[in-house]
Design a protein around this nucleic acid. Sequence first.
DNA 1: CGTTACTTGCGCGTTTCGCGCAAAAGTGCA
DNA 2: TGCACTTTTGCGCGAAACGCGCAAGTAACG
Lengths: 258, 258
Amino acid sequence: MSDRLTARDRRRAIVDMAWTDGRAGVGQLALHFGVTESTIRRDLALLTSQGQLARTYGGAMAHGLVFEASLGQRSREGFRQKQAIAAWAAGQIGRGETVLLDAGTTTGQLARELRDRDQLTVVTIGLTVLNELADADGVDVLCLGGRLRHISQGLVGPFAEAALERITADRAFLGADAVTVENGICEANLEQTRLKEMMMARAERVYVLADASKLGRRPFHAWARMPPSWTLVTDDGAPPGEVERFRAAGVEVIVTET
Amino acid sequence: MSDRLTARDRRRAIVDMAWTDGRAGVGQLALHFGVTESTIRRDLALLTSQGQLARTYGGAMAHGLVFEASLGQRSREGFRQKQAIAAWAAGQIGRGETVLLDAGTTTGQLARELRDRDQLTVVTIGLTVLNELADADGVDVLCLGGRLRHISQGLVGPFAEAALERITADRAFLGADAVTVENGICEANLEQTRLKEMMMARAERVYVLADASKLGRRPFHAWARMPPSWTLVTDDGAPPGEVERFRAAGVEVIVTET
DNA sequence: CGTTACTTGCGCGTTTCGCGCAAAAGTGCA
DNA sequence: TGCACTTTTGCGCGAAACGCGCAAGTAACG
């Protein structure tokens, strides 16, 4: 404080302070560095535009990375639908059960619903799921491991497959890029579909969580074969005809109300 | 929008919108719900006090869980030190290498330094590391899997151990609850120390990242045996005598300047 | 039906913000 | 060293956002 720092150093120090204390006030910072509040405001504006801080009234706060990453990009659309689907799914899970959770925003929502449970074991390959349950002391969380797919924030590959062979679950909740009556779950590549097939094989009951926008689409050409019996959970934006076709094919379909 | 919602519903909707869009403005919300900005401000104040939102200038944003979890509790103290240690460690890592990263805040910082790298493989059991690298497209990230320890945000157990047997790394960077000259790394239980021993065995070079506060303490009674040669990275808050004792014992010691 | 608790809109004074401008400090080059 | 150029800083001012109190309106409950 005795001598003035350069602008860059001061800005880095501001970020540090915000990270350390969680929050830093304009006046407090101005006093600390011996500069005007204007200067601090300019710094905060710059740092905010760089995404290093989040501006608050009268100061700034640090904001985590995961937030931007996992939420900002994808779960923008269809939050309500996913929320409704997740809520229904959470209702199916009883005490003492072991459930298998796929990667994805919907399963992330489901994990969020499970945060306050206890006597529950969650096995997952999803980073969003892990984060939601990071502080859920009552929930036993098992991560299968694997290579991280940055796009889907999920783990795939041999580690996950090897670990899967060593566990079973009461229920498996899977996401999907798309679902059709004829072929089942569609994903970007075979590595993912193989993993999903294995997850389905290791669970007594299989649920596919897919909001209405996922039904009937065929964006890719990798498909996971479905077990004899499974449940599709979607929202009331699903075309009734499409729902009927699934039911006619022997699939149990749950339509949640948003 | 045609009809007015109840206050509680509106507040829940606000939280949803903030989660979905990442951020919601006061004016925008007021318009959306057909109420005054005052009302919105009151809602935001309430929701903020409940910890559901973070207030910003002119609106509010959802604040992730990770923030509260990883920052709020632990990395408060010693941020600068950990930062310096992590920066030095990052400097050791070259292109094309495979590095093993332990769980912990310091290794999380190290991961942060590696976000912009490419041609780099990171193998880890730390949730903080995964989160830092979730969007690092250039970095191959492998997660070993295991049971999640909520306290340390790290994975332990058979899955991690089994996966470790199938890989090796150029360097391993480990955290520690404490380090002593006589016994090496101290942790809360044997499960963790065993995992650390295995990680050390699978890497060519071993670095222990421990800020000054960790040196010489003995908070627990589980110890990991150290390899013949390893490097201790600490900060300049370390007592010179302590540093000398490590050096006398044949340990390479790096003292970073904060 | 009356009481109670809650919610909402409005007005007001206060705090904070952002921007423009000119002085000061730092940077690079001959 | 001296000079031109860029960056940074302080200050003033109008605009925006904020919190608070009050009165009217609305839902909850016995």
